[in-house]
Structures are given as C-alpha cells and as structure tokens.
C-alpha cells in the first residue's frame, strides 16, 4: 500500500527535483562563486580573490553603498518595529475580543496586501503620497515599508497566538492581575517567540524590497537594493556580486533566526 502512495517512486521524480533545485539555486551559486573572482570580467574565472569585497568597503563606490546600506538598515529596523507593534495589537484584538464585528473581514484586510501585485501597491502608494502632497524621500519609504510589512509580521504572531489558550490570562486575572498586567506579565511573554519571528520576517522583507521603494523614494535617496540596481544599469561589475552575496548572507541568517525562534517557542509550551 505505502509503496503505491510513495511519491519518490514516481518515474522522473528525482530528475524533476534536481531540475527545480538547479533553476532555483544555480544562479545564486554562480553569483557567490564569481564574487570571489580575481578578474574584471564577470564570466571568465581568473582565480580566487577578495578584491571585490575590498572594493565594496573601500572602493570608489563605497560611500554610496555605505549610505544606502545605512538607509536600508534604519528603515528596516523602524518599519519592522512599527509593523510588529501594529501586528501584535491587531492579533490580540482579533483573537481575544469576544464579539468583534467583521473579524473575518479584518483578517482578510490584513492579509490582502500579500496577494495584491506589488507593482499595484507601488503605483498606488506613489499616487497616494503625491495626492496628499507628501514630499517623496526617506519618510515616504518608511511609511510604505511599515504598511507592507504588517501582514508579514502579523502571520507568525497570529499563528503563535492561536496556540495560546485564553485560560492563561484568565488564571492571571483570577490571581488579581488587572487586564493590563495579565497582558504584560503573561500573554506578552508567551507571545514573544511569535513576535520575534514576525519582527525578523518584516525586517528581511523591508531590507530586500526594491519595487515599492523605487517608486516612492524620490530623487537623492537610495536603499541598498535601489543602489545595486542603479549600479547594474551601468553594467554589471563583480562588486555587485560581492554586495549581493553579503545581502544573501544577512537574509539567510535572519530567516534562520526567525525559524529557530518560532520553533523554540513551540518546544517550551509543550508539556
């Protein structure tokens, strides 16, 4: 019986899997490998070297990239923080309010941005900002990032919250905690792994975003992705590969951290 149901025995399964993996990861591998290339050409291997990493940090374009990285980082931290705060409040409201009218509608509204094509959000954001006379720049990027980060922060937090029974808060209130204390001393610590995971996810999403940022940023300000795009337009140099590899490393690190955080939380509440 199990032999019949075993997907791994379907003809061509292995080949298909390998093809998928190749398409997904081969370009990344090439970029990573060629970031260590000791050659100005991006296609001809000229031996191992760290010169492009040196170029990223100390080359002619270094100040530009540094400023862009700094912008990306500060925007990501602030956007992720705001989005997380909003996501926590809405998760608590939606899961704990006994009679919240339009709970399903709110849930859909929060998660809809995940399904709206990003280009539509980008255009809409730009039109919105110009309609209200908001000068494009650092602030518009930040506001736009906060908004599109909310669903990403919300999902892990809501998932975490779903597994916390409300008897914990009831027990706290039974033991003379005010509703505010029950939230701060009991619910919030229990939600922490979800909050941490949501924050990291929002952070990565903000750090990586190009499309919306490019639309709303206005002139004179760059984030790391838009700066990279700007450089690429003048021809791909190996230093772009070095930056990309660094960015990839940061992303993978944060996603792993986020995954570990949510798994750690699950283990702890298991009794």
């Amino acid at each position: 019986m199990s032999k019949v149901a075993d997907m791994r025995r379907f003809p061509g399964f292995l080949q298909l899997t390998l093809l998928c993996l190749l398409v997904l990861y081969a370009p990344l591998m090439v970029v990573m490998a060629y970031s260590f290339n000791d050659n100005t050409s991006i296609t001809i291997w000229g031996g191992f070297s760290l010169r492009w990493y040196e170029d990223v940090f100390f080359g002619v374009e270094a100040p530009k990239f540094k400023q862009a990285a700094l912008n990306s980082l500060t925007i990501a931290v602030m956007a992720a923080t705001c989005a997380t705060v909003i996501a926590v409040s809405s998760a608590v409201a939606m899961m704990r309010a006994r009679r919240l009218r339009g709970r399903t509608a709110s849930f859909a509204l929060i998660n809809l941005p995940l399904m709206v094509p990003e280009i539509v959000t980008a255009v809409a954001s730009l039109i919105f900002f110009s309609a209200i006379g908001f000068t494009t720049g650092y602030a518009t990027i930040l506001v736009a990032h906060i908004v599109f980060c909310i669903p990403f922060a919300y999902l892990p937090i809501a998932a975490r919250m779903q597994s916390i029974e409300d008897t914990y808060e009831q027990a706290a209130m039974d033991l003379y905690a005010t509703p505010a204390q029950a939230f701060r001393l009991v619910l919030l610590p229990l939600m922490m792994p979800g909050i941490f995971s949501g924050f990291l996810l929002a952070f990565i999403i903000s750090l990586d975003d190009f499309l919306i940022t490019n639309f709303v940023k206005g002139a004179g300000i760059e984030t790391l992705p838009t700066a990279i795009f700007g450089s690429v337009k003048q021809g791909i140099k190996p230093n772009i590969m070095a930056i990309s590899t660094l960015l990839l490393l940061v992303s993978v690190g944060f996603v792993t951290l986020s995954y570990l955080a949510s798994r750690m939380g699950q283990n702890k509440t298991k009794t």
Binding site: T167, Q170, A171, L175, Y176, A177, P179, V186, T269
Partner: peptide, 29 residues
C-alpha cells in the same frame, strides 16, 4: 471583574504559566 473578587480558581488544565517557575507561579497572586 475577576481580579477584584477575593476568589481563586484551580483550572481544569491547571493553566500554570509556562514561562515562570513553580515559585513564581505561586507568588503571582
């Protein structure tokens, strides 16, 4: 409200706070 009633409850599933030690649980109230 519950926190103003001089009444305490032992819950069916105990609802012990998992992030606190036994002593912290007992001292909570």
């Amino acid at each position: 409200p519950p926190h103003q009633r001089p009444v305490n409850t032992v819950f069916q599933q105990y609802a012990l706070f998992p992030h606190m030690t036994v002593a912290q649980n007992v001292m909570f109230g």
